[in-house]
Amino acid sequence: MTLWWIGNAVLLVVLVVVILLLTGVLNAAKGIVPSVRRIAGAAAAGSKDLDAVPMLLTTQDQVRQTVAGVAAYGGSLDVILDDAKEA
């Protein structure tokens, strides 16, 4: 009988330890949820910020046209202006 009560005491200790450990696990899991939600919000905002990326194609085309125009002007200037005299 005494041994039985000792076993009950051990079970009581086990119950307390189990509750403590599972409380820690549950609190850790609850702490992750808000962080994941913030990360999801940041990723969605980052994705929305990149909506303007296709405009880069327009920029690319404009740059090509501008450089072509500059090259044409440069070629004309090269023809109509004298070169600098050597010192």
């Binding site: 549950l26 609850k30 992750i32 949820v33 939600r37 990360i39 999801a40 990723a43 969605a44």
Partner: peptide
């Protein structure tokens, strides 16, 4: 809680 985390990570992966 792990299910909520899993759902949030799904949204993160979609945005990424």
């Amino acid at each position: 809680q792990l299910r909520a985390i899993n759902h949030g990570l799904d949204e993160v992966i979609q945005s990424v």
